[in-house]
Design a protein around this nucleic acid. Structure first.
Lengths: 362, 362
DNA sequence: TTGAAAGCGCTAACAT
DNA sequence: ATGTTAGCGCTTTCAA
């Protein structure tokens, strides 16, 4: 039994000066306890198969020396990494995204609690060539499963299906039964927001949504539409703007609305960040919020509390969303039966950007 | 040579239905190429030791089948995880912290580029019992090195030293040569901020800082003090408030300043988030910013652009900070010589919260 | 240039 | 109840 000297040398590179100290392995513990490695394994993993005195003796040493079995070894043996990846497109880091960064926190906590490492990683997708550049963590299959946020190209989905890597889409704006996902009920959210504005007297309500994220765009628009219809309100088509996809595009949507000869008294925006863009436009045009115009968003991102006035919104429960996501993904990883999850989204958060319509006696 | 059936069974649990497909291992590739595993290893790792034709034949198969060597296996062999951890105290997630979340993004990118996985993880430290609860990722030594943000208790530092786990403190508010760290020059930042206010005519300047983060508190205060002294300005002691540690505490600091019989024309805050708290207080007390009062912070967090008016600040270069951090940490992991890094911090970002003092002709 | 063999640390099957 | 052994996938040494 010869030692692989080169490898040993390599290894010692990383151990600093204290290479004289025996590395804490199961063998070492076994030697100290005067038992076999298998006995130690049984004790450490809390299985039965050893006598009480043996267990106690081993446990004692394990605890005193703070022995933890080498995870690489177990990963190799079980072919399981205990890593979960969060994948995002390059230059679209979820860490600096107000909505997803909150989700990240929740998901991280869940992963930790369940003994998974959470690894963030980015991929590239070239729309023209249809080429996907996967991160190493995926190529090397260094994850048991993967999380995507929001919209994700079908090519990427296909790729992961082909590779047979379990994945889930969180805050999915699609709703195919074939794809595991957790999504918020944006229809309900939009409906609730609009109904609220109506309930405080607004009859002239504009809508800023998106057509670039189709399913999400439809959901939010139809929620708005339902509330409007239920109350038999009619409004100029120009008040419905569907070209938002971020703050600046929403600014332009708002500008379009204001360009009409009559201004609404309230706006529903299908995302808080759209509302924030719209608010900027309103201010630039000397509208006072909420006195001249009420505005409400959807999401409840942290920013809402810092803009002025603080933004009213429909809260999307990110805690439930994150917990569901991990729950479902792990079920999928473990080949348990799962189904998609939809998070109810009708919690109204009233801040300063909305107020009852002023009586405009003509 | 019998197969370990139980393990095989376990493993198959995670492979879905397609268990009939041979798993892609080095052995499998070797078989297909009609060579030995060692030959494949040589080719995959781009070392010399095989003939050109062999290399080509193997490479061809490797690329066609998209073979990537099992990382668990290599980790076991080399005793290197290729994981880097970001550790933070429970309930202080850097993901929802404006400054650190930007840093996270940079650090993640660096890690990816260098072939490391970045793993976020939390620890608990009980000030009373002095007990540290380490995350599994550390207990199991599933990281090669670790990053901390900001202030970190000496007990935790000692622990990691004892465990011989390489670590670095990023945005360190301490500056011991014994502890590897990257920090911003907050002295310079504070000095630059104050000098700027003076340069636009302010002579009545208050300061909101912190005594709870000692080194950082001192740095920022002394930077302020230097600029004040250089210009032979005198100011009431009550304009120096050092009890801030977040938005709300800073609100109170501002309130204290306003309680004095004379108000300053400008405020230097040692962090943007303090400035934001102070701004809230000013608004609540009907001060117009910047007309009645100019205010400047330090950091340049994303929030600055959303508050009203947008906050002027001294930018801390998070990109350089993050890059340095990974660079130094990896050097430390690889036992190379390193030294601490200090990031110059004198980039003035002028937004809407500061303006030249109005001529107050008495 | 090539392949056989050993071993990283662990666990489970099997023999005692 | 306990110990022995094989093997997870890989890389390196050593022998041919």
């Amino acid at each position: 039994m010869k030692t692989n000297q080169f490898v040993r040398q390599q290894r010692n590179l990383f151990k600093g000066v204290q290479t004289f100290m025996a590395k804490l392995t199961i063998k070492e513990i076994a030697r100290m306890a005067g038992v076999s490695p298998s006995a130690v394994s049984i004790v450490v993993n809390n299985r039965k198969g050893v006598s009480e005195p043996t267990r106690a003796r081993v446990m004692d040493i394990v605890e005193k020396l703070n022995y933890y079995p080498n995870p690489s070894s177990r990963r190799l043996l079980f072919n399981k990494t205990n890593n979960i990846g969060i994948l995002f497109k390059k230059n679209a880091s979820p860490m600096e995204h107000f909505f997803y960064s909150e989700l990240n926190s929740v998901i991280l906590q869940e992963c930790e609690a369940l003994g998974y490492n959470l690894i963030f990683s980015s991929l590239e997708y070239n729309n023209k060539t249809n080429e996907i550049t996967l991160p190493n963590v995926v190529n090397y299959r260094d994850v048991d499963g993967v999380i995507f946020y929001g919209d994700i190209d079908i090519q990427i989905i296909n790729k992961f299906n082909t590779m047979d890597i379990p994945f889930i889409i969180v805050d999915s704006h699609n709703r195919s039964e074939d794809i595991l996902s957790v999504s918020a009920d944006y229809y309900e959210a939009s409906y609730t927001a609009t109904k609220y504005l109506i309930s405080i007297g607004h009859m002239s309500i504009a809508f800023i949504g998106t057509s670039l994220i189709p399913f999400y765009g439809n959901q939010t628009f139809f929620g708005f539409k339902k509330a409007i219809e239920e109350n038999r309100i009619s409004l100029p088509i120009n008040w419905i703007q569907l070209d938002a996809f971020d703050e600046n595009s929403s600014y332009l949507c708002m500008k379009n609305i204001l360009s009409y000869n009559q201004a609404p008294t309230a706006i529903v925006c299908s995302a808080d960040i759209y509302a924030i863009g719209a608010m900027r436009c309103l201010k630039d045009n000397n509208y006072k919020i909420p006195d001249d115009m009420s505005i409400i968003g959807i999401d409840d991102i942290i920013l809402d509390q810092y803009v002025e006035p603080a933004l009213s919104t429909i809260k999307i429960d990110k805690v439930e969303m994150g917990k569901s996501a991990i729950d479902l993904l792990i079920k999928k990883i473990e080949n348990e039966k799962t189904g998609n999850q939809i998070i109810t989204s009708n919690e109204l958060v009233i801040r300063r950007s909305t107020k009852p319509v002023k009586d405009t006696k003509v």
